[in-house]
């Protein structure tokens, strides 16, 4: 049973976020629990942002990945509470984000002030917020004052 859950967790690590393909659903911290009941698997997930359109696709991709590995009876349950927080994102997930060019969320969560977010390109913290809303619900738009590169910041939540 424990081995089975480990096996499923390993499969989940291969399911990526459709908006940020370098992150897996486990990196994102949206997998709350995996349960086995006979031959059925229940994966309990929590949505990131309330209106995030990627959630339906994420649920489908999890289901497909498990079916592909031979699990026939897959149930995806979505729970709202406790509310997802960027604090649940794994450390390796944050490193992957940074390498991808997105500044990872700061911990502990909260709205940051200017000059605290490091540019993912040149690492300078001399940066400014251009808009608190970016290309997806989870991102804000920043610009580095030193290397001038605009970049996404994954908002704390």
């Amino acid at each position: 049973m424990q081995d089975e859950i480990k096996n499923i967790t390993a499969i989940l690590e291969t399911v990526s976020d459709p908006e940020i393909p370098v992150l897996s659903v486990t990196d994102m911290g949206i997998i709350r629990e995996v349960k086995m009941n006979g031959d059925s698997v229940e994966v309990i997930i929590t949505p990131t942002y309330t209106g995030c359109p990627a959630m339906d696709m994420i649920a489908m991709n999890i289901r497909l990945a498990l079916i592909e590995k031979g699990y026939r009876n897959v149930i995806i349950t979505s729970v709202l509470s406790p509310a997802w927080t960027t604090d649940w994102m794994t450390e390796s997930g944050k490193q992957k984000l940074k390498a991808y060019g997105i500044a990872p969320p700061q911990t502990p969560s909260g709205i940051p002030s200017d000059g605290t977010i490091a540019c993912p390109q040149c690492h300078s913290t001399n940066t400014r917020c251009i808009s608190e809303f970016g290309s997806t619900a989870c991102k804000a738009l920043y610009q580095c004052n030193d290397c001038k590169e605009p970049f996404d910041y994954f908002k704390c939540h």
Partner: peptide
């Protein structure tokens, strides 16, 4: 563009709340 995106992001958040 940035403010267009901001407002539509807010619209999306509100839509998500209403769906719930």
């Amino acid at each position: 563009l940035e403010q267009d995106i901001a407002l539509t992001n807010i619209a999306l958040d509100l839509l998500g709340q209403s769906r719930n």
